[in-house]
């Protein structure tokens, strides 16, 4: 999983080609931390088709808000720099994240 920050977000996500998953999280977000191992597992399975990245919003709050993310957890899918799909908040469960990822494989 590529760790994103203020500096590399543009390059890794917005100007990247292909499909990129961004896991928006923060250290105080328990639901986010609970999801994380499952996202890692899915990366092992599908990492060849989707680039997996994560952004700790406490280190890049403005970047997240710039992406209209103002609540966690968010697992978003970008294609050629455009956010095309994602699951947010309560809806982000191990099941919905798996289904989301499988849609893009």
């Amino acid at each position: 999983m590529i760790e994103l920050n203020k500096e590399n977000f543009e390059e890794e996500v917005l100007t990247a080609e292909g499909t990129v998953l961004v896991d928006f999280w923060s250290p105080s977000c328990e639901p986010c931390k609970a999801l994380m191992p499952h996202v890692h597992e899915l990366e092992e399975k599908h990492g060849d088709k989707i680039k997996f990245t994560s952004l700790d919003i406490t280190k890049a709050r403005r970047v997240a808000i710039g992406q209209k993310v103002m609540g966690l957890p968010v697992i978003a899918i970008y294609q050629n720099g455009e956010r095309v799909d994602g699951v947010v908040g309560d809806e982000a469960t191990t099941k919905s994240v798996k289904e989301l990822i499988e849609k893009f494989c």
Binding site: C29, E30, C32, M70, G71, V74
Partner: peptide, 11 residues
């Protein structure tokens, strides 16, 4: 939800 509306303050 997740765009200003929230149910979890610590999140």
């Amino acid at each position: 939800t997740g765009r200003g509306v929230s149910y979890c303050a610590t999140c």
